[in-house]
Measured scan of single mutants.
Amino acid sequence: TEKEKEVKRLAKERGLSPDQVRELAQRAGFSPDQAKQIADEFA
């Protein structure tokens, strides 16, 4: 999704850790499970 792409782009730009990616995703409105899946891509 657009929102997911945006979260991943920000995460890459900022060099976020997987935990930070998960927090960012949840703040963007993703469920905890979705946020974990997104964060796992950065693990």
Rank of each mutant, 00 (worst) to 15 (best):
S31Q: 06
Q37Y: 04
Q20E: 14
E6F: 12
A25Q: 01
F30T: 01
F42P: 02
E4D: 05
V7M: 06
Q20Y: 03
R14V: 09
T1M: 14
I38Q: 01
Q34D: 09
E6N: 10
S31H: 06
A28N: 09
K36S: 12
L24E: 06
P18R: 10
Q37F: 05
Q26P: 02
L16E: 01
K3M: 13
V7K: 03
Q26H: 06
Q37N: 09
R14P: 04
P32Y: 08
A39L: 03
E2D: 13
L24H: 04
R14L: 15
L10D: 09
L16W: 05
K5M: 12
A43E: 14
E23I: 11
S17Y: 06
A28W: 12
E6V: 08
R27V: 11
A35E: 02
S31N: 09
D40Y: 07
K12F: 06
E2C: 12
D40H: 12
E23L: 07
T1V: 13
G29S: 01
D19R: 10
K8P: 04
Q20I: 04
A28E: 12
L10V: 15
A43T: 10
S17R: 09
A35N: 01
D40E: 14
D40I: 11
G15H: 10
E41Y: 05
L24C: 07
E2A: 10
K3A: 13
R27P: 01
Q26A: 11
P18F: 12
V21E: 02
R22H: 09
E2K: 09
A35L: 02
L24D: 02
S31V: 03
R27A: 15
E6L: 15
P32R: 03
P18N: 07
V21F: 03
R14H: 15
E13H: 06
D33W: 02
K3S: 09
K3V: 11
E4F: 10
E2I: 11
E13C: 10
K8G: 04
K12T: 12
A28T: 07
A35Q: 03
G15M: 08
E23R: 09
E4H: 08
L10C: 15
R27E: 15
R27M: 14
G15Y: 04
E2M: 13
Q34H: 11
K5G: 08
A11S: 05
Q26K: 10
V7N: 04
L16T: 00
I38N: 02
D40A: 10
E41A: 10
L16R: 01
L16K: 00
D33N: 09
A35D: 00
R27Y: 07
L16S: 02
R9S: 06
E23V: 06
T1A: 13
A11I: 03
E13F: 03
E4Y: 13
K36N: 12
P18T: 09
G29F: 00
L24Y: 03
D19N: 10
L10S: 09
K3I: 12
T1K: 14
K3L: 15
P32E: 13
F42K: 02
R9L: 05
S17E: 07
S31P: 11
E23K: 06
Q34E: 14
L24I: 07
T1G: 13
I38A: 02
V21I: 12
V7S: 01
V21H: 00
E6R: 08
L10G: 06
E41V: 04
P18A: 12
R9H: 07
K5L: 11
A35C: 05
D19Q: 13
E4W: 15
L10K: 13
T1W: 14
L16P: 00
F42V: 13
P32K: 07
E2G: 10
D40F: 07
E23Q: 10
A11F: 02
D19F: 04
A28M: 15
E2W: 13
D40Q: 10
L10N: 10
K8H: 09
T1L: 14
E4N: 06
K8W: 03
A25Y: 00
A11C: 05
E6Y: 12
E13Y: 04
K8M: 05
A25N: 00
E13K: 07
I38Y: 02
A39P: 01
K12D: 07
Q37L: 11
Q37V: 12
I38M: 07
D33F: 03
E41K: 06
V7Y: 03
A35V: 04
K3P: 07
D33H: 09
K36M: 12
L24P: 02
D40R: 10
A28R: 07
A35K: 00
P32D: 12
L24K: 02
A28P: 00
V7T: 05
E41D: 14
E2F: 10
K36T: 10
K3E: 07
T1R: 14
Q26V: 15
D19T: 11
Q34F: 07
A25L: 11
A43Q: 11
P18S: 09
K3T: 10
V7E: 03
Q26M: 14
G29E: 01
S31D: 11
F42H: 04
D40K: 09
R14A: 14
R27I: 13
V21M: 05
K36Q: 15
V21R: 00
A43S: 11
E13L: 11
A11W: 03
A43F: 15
R27L: 15
A43M: 13
I38H: 01
A35W: 01
S31K: 06
L16C: 07
F42A: 05
D19M: 09
S31M: 06
R9Y: 03
K8V: 12
A25D: 01
R22W: 11
K12M: 06
I38F: 04
A25H: 01
Q34G: 05
A25I: 03
A25K: 00
D19V: 09
Q26C: 11
L10R: 12
E2H: 10
F30N: 00
E4A: 15
Q20M: 08
L16Y: 13
K36F: 08
V7C: 09
E13N: 06
D19L: 07
E2Q: 12
Q26L: 14
A39I: 02
R14N: 14
L10T: 14
A11N: 01
A25E: 01
K12V: 08
R14W: 10
Q37A: 14
L10E: 15
E23A: 08
R22Y: 15
T1Y: 14
